[in-house]
Simulated scan of single mutants.
Amino acid sequence: MNLPPLPAIILEPLVRAALLEDLGRAGDVTSDAVVPRGHRVTTVLAARQTGIVAGLDLAMLAFRLIDQDVEMTVHRADGSEVVQGEIIASVVGPARAILTAERTALNFLCHLSGIATATASVVAAVRGHGASIVCTRKTTPGLRAVEKYAVRVGGGSNHRFGLDDAILIKDNHIAIAGGIRPAVERARSCVGHLVKIEVEVDTLAQLEEVLALAPDAVLLDNMSVDELRQAVVMVSGRAITEASGRITVATAPAIAATGVDLISIGWLTHSAPILDIGLDYPKL
Rank of each mutant, 00 (worst) to 15 (best):
residue 1 M to W: 07
residue 6 L to S: 12
residue 17 A to L: 08
residue 22 D to W: 05
residue 22 D to L: 07
residue 28 D to H: 00
residue 29 V to R: 05
residue 32 D to H: 11
residue 32 D to T: 07
residue 32 D to E: 15
residue 39 H to G: 07
residue 41 V to Q: 15
residue 43 T to G: 10
residue 46 A to M: 15
residue 49 Q to P: 01
residue 52 I to A: 02
residue 59 A to N: 01
residue 62 A to I: 06
residue 65 L to E: 12
residue 67 D to S: 15
residue 68 Q to E: 15
residue 72 M to D: 02
residue 73 T to A: 14
residue 75 H to L: 15
residue 84 Q to H: 12
residue 84 Q to F: 04
residue 87 I to K: 12
residue 89 A to F: 05
residue 91 V to G: 03
residue 94 P to G: 14
residue 95 A to H: 08
residue 99 L to A: 11
residue 103 R to S: 09
residue 104 T to M: 07
residue 111 H to R: 15
residue 112 L to P: 02
residue 113 S to I: 01
residue 115 I to N: 06
residue 117 T to A: 10
residue 120 A to K: 07
residue 120 A to D: 07
residue 124 A to D: 14
residue 124 A to S: 08
residue 130 G to S: 11
residue 131 A to V: 02
residue 132 S to T: 13
residue 133 I to K: 04
residue 137 R to W: 09
residue 137 R to E: 11
residue 139 T to M: 04
residue 140 T to C: 06
residue 142 G to L: 10
residue 145 A to P: 05
residue 145 A to S: 13
residue 146 V to M: 10
residue 147 E to M: 14
residue 153 V to A: 00
residue 153 V to N: 01
residue 153 V to R: 01
residue 161 F to P: 03
residue 166 A to D: 11
residue 169 I to E: 10
residue 178 G to W: 03
residue 181 R to W: 03
residue 182 P to C: 10
residue 186 R to D: 06
residue 188 R to D: 09
residue 188 R to I: 09
residue 189 S to V: 06
residue 195 V to T: 15
residue 210 V to Y: 00
residue 211 L to Y: 06
residue 213 L to V: 03
residue 214 A to W: 04
residue 215 P to H: 02
residue 219 L to D: 02
residue 221 D to N: 00
residue 227 E to I: 03
residue 237 G to H: 08
residue 243 A to F: 02
residue 250 A to N: 10
residue 253 P to D: 04
residue 254 A to F: 09
residue 255 I to W: 00
residue 256 A to T: 05
residue 267 W to S: 08
residue 269 T to C: 00
residue 270 H to N: 02
residue 272 A to S: 15
residue 274 I to D: 10
residue 276 D to G: 03
residue 279 L to I: 05
residue 279 L to P: 05
residue 280 D to V: 08
residue 281 Y to C: 12
residue 284 L to T: 09
